[in-house]
Structure formats: C-alpha cells, structure tokens
Nucleic acid binder design. Structure first.
Lengths: 248, 248
DNA sequence: TGAATAGTGTCTATAAGACAATATCCC
DNA sequence: GGGATATTGTCTTATAGACACTATTCA
C-alpha cells in the first residue's frame, strides 16, 4: 500500500484526457426458448425515445457496485420474472453510434429457458412478448435475424438488437454440438422426440433420428427414467432425464 | 425526432440512480504467439500502483469516441508496435473488485501474431516481454494459467490477467479444430511440420502426423507452393501457404 | 387389422489412429 | 550405405447417414 496521493496521481496519469468522459455500460439479455418448433426470444416494447414503439431486448444499466452477471440476473428477474436459469455472456457491443443518445457499451448475455417457465405475463398487453426468431442464414454463417409475431407479422427491432440476437443463435448452434445445453430448454423429464425437436429448432435443420438417438444415449448425458408417456394412439415413448454427470 | 427536452427526460428516467456513477471501461489485449514450441504472450511491467512491478496485459481506457475494436487496435499499435493482425473479442470481465482503485470493466481481446513480427522491443529492458504461457490444465478445461520467463522463473501477473490469458488459451484451443487460425501464427509460407508444431503447442498435446496431414490437405485450406526447404541433412519438405478460400 | 410412432439392426461412407513402407537429402 | 525426415499406403476402429425391420399402443 502506498499513500493515497501517489495512488491517485498514478491513476490519473494513466487515465488520459481522451478517456475522461466515460461511456455508459448496460447489459442486454437474449432470453431464448423453444416452443411449437420455433425459436423464440423475449422482447419488450420501448415506450421512450429513441426507437419508441420498437421491440428491444430486456436490459438495464450496470450499477457501479454490481457485477455484470449480477446485472444480467437482475434484468432477468425484473423484466422477465425468471431466476436460476442458464445464463452466459455473449459479446460486448461497443460501436460508437449504436445508441443515438450517448455512448453506450452493452454487454450482451443469453439465457436458455424452458418454455413452460415463460408462460406468464408474456402477452403484448404487458409491453412484452415471446417473439418468433427468424434466422435467414444456414448453419453458423451468422448475421442479423428477424423477429415476428405468431401470425408472421414483422416486429421492428431497436438498436442493434437484430445483430445481438443473431449472434446468440450462432453461438448456441455452435455449442449444441459439444455441450449439453438442450436440457436447459426442456423440463426435467422429456422424450427423445422433444430433445430432437429442440436440437432441430435451434440448428434450423432436420436431424437423422437413429443417429441422434445413438449419439445422445452414447454420450452418457441422458438416462432413461423408466416412465412412459400415456394417452397416445401409438407406442408410448420413454421419458429421459439429463444426468448432469457429463456436464460437470 | 422529438424535442431535446423530451429525449433528455426519457433518458434520465431510464437511467436510474444506481447507475449514475459510471464504471470505467478498458480494453486488454492478449497477444499470443508460438515460438520454440512454446505458447507466448506479450506482457508489460506495471510501474504504478496497484500491482506495481507485476506483469500485465497491454491495455488502455476506452475513449468515448472510439469503438472497442478501435481501442484494442490502438493498444496493439501503441503498446506492442503491431498492426493488421488477427484480433477478436474474448470476454468482458466485470467483477466489482477486480481493480482495487475503482470500478473497472475490461473488454478483453486476443490477437494472434507470427513470432517474427514480435521480435523487436520485446526485451524486459523496455518494460515488456514475451512471456511463456504455462497451461496447468488439459484440453478445454479452462482456468488460470501461469507466466514464466525463458529460464522458467515465475512472473507475477497483475489483476485477473491469469484468468484472462487462460480464457484466451481455452478459446483458441476450441477454435483451432474448426477454424483455420493456425496460419495467423506463421509466416506466409511454412512447412507442414511448422503448422503441426503450432497446433501441438496451442493444444498442449501431440498429434498424429499422418492424420494431421490428411486433414489439413483435405480441408482445402492450404496448398503446396512447389518450393522446398534447403540446407537440411534429410529429405527437404515442401512449403505450403494458406489458400484463404476456405476461410472466406 | 391398420395407423402411428418408438426403438433397433445393419450396411456403407468417412475420418482418425496404428503401423509400415518408400522417397530424398546430406554425409 | 547410413542417418534423418518427408511423404504415402493400408489396415483397423469409431461415427454418421441410409434404409429397413420389429415393437407397442389405440381405434
């Protein structure tokens, strides 16, 4: 430890004039889920300028006494009413003019949530909705995506959020192949058919059933529960659960 | 466009009290290279508190009128004397206490550079050096790494930079398998032996020669030049170059 | 029995590791 | 020729797609 004066002087010397004016820092969260074979994202409608009326990712400013992850968790809790979900940092967007008001750097996170946990309060009457994500590119090409209503009406996205959501899609497409993240989008017990549907929806392409089963069962990431679906007019499928062994 | 007053009012309303005090934002760049079968990183010695004397990643504050990427390029130019290199954003570190002076959020980037371009001015007498990165984990497990001199002396790393460098190693280990980034660490023309050495050094494990050749040649990412090494006491190897076709 | 979906067998193609052979240079 | 490294051949194993077959439920 050194005397405060020296500390301060050294700090100011390093902190050059150009940087004296500080950018604002926000977090934006791409909350993704899969429902009805469609990839969906939570959007909130802006009521203030700029981009009033457009749809944006839930976000908020980062307080000086909270970590980035805490800020993202706060946004999830306050703006989407969910807690304890898979949450990862995505990318930090820092173009100078991305917010017309002032310089705002945003640290984007993405969350994966079981659709059942997002049911409540997601109607447009609350100024938020679960929009359909339309991905105009294949594989992991990347790029902006579009948001639509269930009736296929286009939703105007605010700021650079079309790019942010696009990057989240690209990221999870890449991760799906080697990290067991599919179970974040499903309830605790699920059918292999459901898991395959989630994978197909995220990847945007169909998968070969037998290969998919072989890989999932051979990975040790899932295990049969011994319980079977009922009330169907065909052979009932078995429920599986994630072991969480392969993930740790 | 709306009248400035309304704009300002709406902005302030959104910008709640907690966030009034803004964090500082910096960029830190993990400049990696491979030399003598060792992974290396550019470090600069701190002369001011905190962590005076310790070794840190080159970094700097982000100006309010420059993008994050521009800031990272400025750091590369000013603190390492290099330009036009492979540069990608790595992760944003935002723990509340990661800098004891004040709240500093840092956006980390990593750069991959051919060792030949880093030769000049990298002696410790300039307060910078090309340190050896020692990775204590296998595969993509991740975690902090250590920095050492060529004589195996440990170098104290400042702040959370051991974690930052570790994440950069994890990231490029993951990317190496499906993105042609090896050529960023080599001159324009190279031997397959050199490319394999770079891959082995980055991955921290040895590779099977025949399989490596098959994969690289079959990928279409590299092509033979027709030129061969000389002055060796064995069969000379052919030089190859990257096609840049597979990358675009 | 027929419709529908679950779950399995098997063949082929592809990619990687193991092992070995051949090629080319210098001494 | 002998030593050293480059380059190629071939066998085996593992994995994924293609295709087909069996299993189970309900109407």
């Amino acid at each position: 430890m050194v005397e405060p004066t020296g500390d301060e002087a050294a700090f100011l010397a390093e902190y050059d004039v150009e940087a004296f004016e500080r950018p604002s820092v926000t977090v934006d969260v791409v909350i993704l889920t899969v429902e009805q074979h469609r990839l969906r994202v939570v959007l909130v409608q802006r009521d203030a300028h700029p981009h009033a009326g457009r749809w944006a990712l839930p976000g908020g400013f980062v307080g000086v006494d909270e970590s980035l992850e805490s800020a993202a968790e706060r946004v999830l809790r306050d703006k989407a009413g969910i807690e304890d979900v898979y949450l990862e940092q995505l990318y930090t967007f820092g173009a100078v003019d991305r917010d017309p008001r002032t310089r705002v750097i945003t640290v984007a996170y993405y969350a994966l949530v079981d659709a059942e946990r997002l049911r409540d309060g997601m109607g447009p009457e609350n100024g938020r909705r679960l929009a359909v994500v339309e991905v105009p590119w294949e594989g992991e090409a990347g790029g902006a995506v579009a948001a639509r209503t269930d009736d296929d009406q286009a939703l105007d996205l605010a700021f650079d959020h079309a790019e942010v959501i696009g990057l989240a899609v690209k990221r999870i497409r890449g991760k799906l192949d080697y990290v067991p993240i599919g179970y974040q989008l499903l309830p605790d017990e699920f059918l292999l058919r459901d898991l395959q549907e989630v994978h197909e929806t995220v990847l945007g392409r169909s998968l070969v059933k037998h290969s998919f089963r072989r890989r999932m069962l051979g990975s040790g990431e899932i295990e049969p529960t011994g319980r079977y679906e009922g009330d169907v007019d065909h052979r009932p499928a078995e429920f599986y659960r994630f072991t969480h062994d392969g993930a740790v």
